[in-house]
């Protein structure tokens, strides 16, 4: 029983990571209809930049994070200026391919600037197991994972407040609902895009820090984007709660499958299991977890 609980908790923790990346996807998709394939590479890039700044210039963690946030905002502005505004009104697939191109650029750029070896990221997050759980219940839970979960919860609350209570948040929701209508009441799409990509960049940084603290900043970090995609299918491309719940379900289901099913059918199933789970789910509920039933009109 304890083992089952441990597996579940570690699954949930992994799920939090997926949720974080999925959240970045959802923000951008909602506000601009762009399926941003570069989200995972953005997490890698942010992680690399943070490590690089701390190593090369000896910045303390808080200054490094601030500087990286600045870099991510600059990046968002560059993406809007160089790519998005030149591809307005193109088909979704074109924009999607452009973000794959962007993924290549960021991957190459990160390597060229900071080198491609695995880097340790230490910003002073707690390591090791949570003592009292281990002592009293014999339950092994990593402090780092708890920190990640807490950070994720805080991020979601901050984002929720940002969306519900601020002027920019309202404008963002307006854009998400209907681009044309938002434009016609005087909301600047370009500003919104820069903001959304900046916020996604910061979310990516958080994901990069969490993942990097655990297993080092390396190329495989960019692959968590592939883990976030089934989360999107499950939760819907436009639903923030969907991204969170979907991430937890996928993380949990994946761990269970790995532990209880993996040995039977040959292991290493985590690459595709999440996709199959999402696929089967979608077959029965095409609108996803939180989507409304679609009424087709003609």
């Amino acid at each position: 029983m304890m083992f089952f609980l441990e597996v579940t908790i570690s699954g949930l923790m992994a799920g939090v990571m997926y949720s974080l990346v999925a959240l970045g996807f959802v923000l951008i998709f909602k506000a601009s209809g762009v399926f941003n394939f570069a989200q995972g590479v953005m997490a890698l890039f942010a992680g690399l930049t943070l490590v690089g700044l701390m190593e090369k210039f000896g910045l303390p963690p808080w200054a490094g994070i601030m500087a990286t946030i600045a870099v991510m905002i600059l990046l968002a502005w560059l993406i809007e200026f160089l790519i998005l505004r030149r591809l307005v009104n193109q088909e979704h697939i074109i924009l999607f391919m452009a973000t794959i191109g962007l993924a290549y650029v960021l991957e190459g750029l990160g390597d060229v600037m900071w080198g491609s070896d695995v880097k340790l990221l230490d910003i002073g997050l707690p390591q090791g197991a949570v003592d009292w759980l281990l002592d009293d219940y014999n339950l092994y839970v990593e402090k780092l994972e708890v920190a990640a979960a807490v950070t994720a919860v805080i991020m979601v609350i901050v984002l929720a407040i940002f969306f519900q209570k601020t002027r920019i948040g309202r404008a963002l929701r307006a854009v998400a609902d209907d681009h044309q209508a938002a434009l016609s009441v005087g909301i600047s799409l370009r500003t919104i895009w820069v903001i959304v990509w900046s916020v996604s960049g910061i979310v990516a940084l958080v994901a990069g820090i969490m993942w990097g603290s655990k297993s080092g900043v390396q190329f495989s970090l960019s692959l968590i984007a592939l883990k976030a995609l089934p989360v999107l299918m499950l939760g819907g491309f436009t639903s923030i709660p969907g991204a969170i719940i979907g991430g937890l379900i996928i993380g949990m289901g994946e761990k269970w499958a790995e532990i209880y099913m993996g040995p039977i059918i040959g292991g290493a199933i985590e690459n595709w299991f999440a996709y199959m789970l999402a696929l089967v789910f979608l077959l029965f509920r095409p609108q996803g977890l939180f989507g409304e039933k679609i009424i087709e009109r003609i």
Binding site: L82, I83, R86, L87, Q90, E91, I94, M97, A98, I100, G101, L102, A103, Y104, V105, L106, E107, G108, L109, D111, V112, S116
Partner: peptide, 19 residues
């Protein structure tokens, strides 16, 4: 690394010039 980067740049450039 530069090659990966330039490939990305060229792809984006092409999409913008002739989608």
């Amino acid at each position: 690394h530069v090659q990966i980067m330039l490939m990305g740049v060229l792809i984006i450039f092409f999409l913008i010039v002739e989608p």
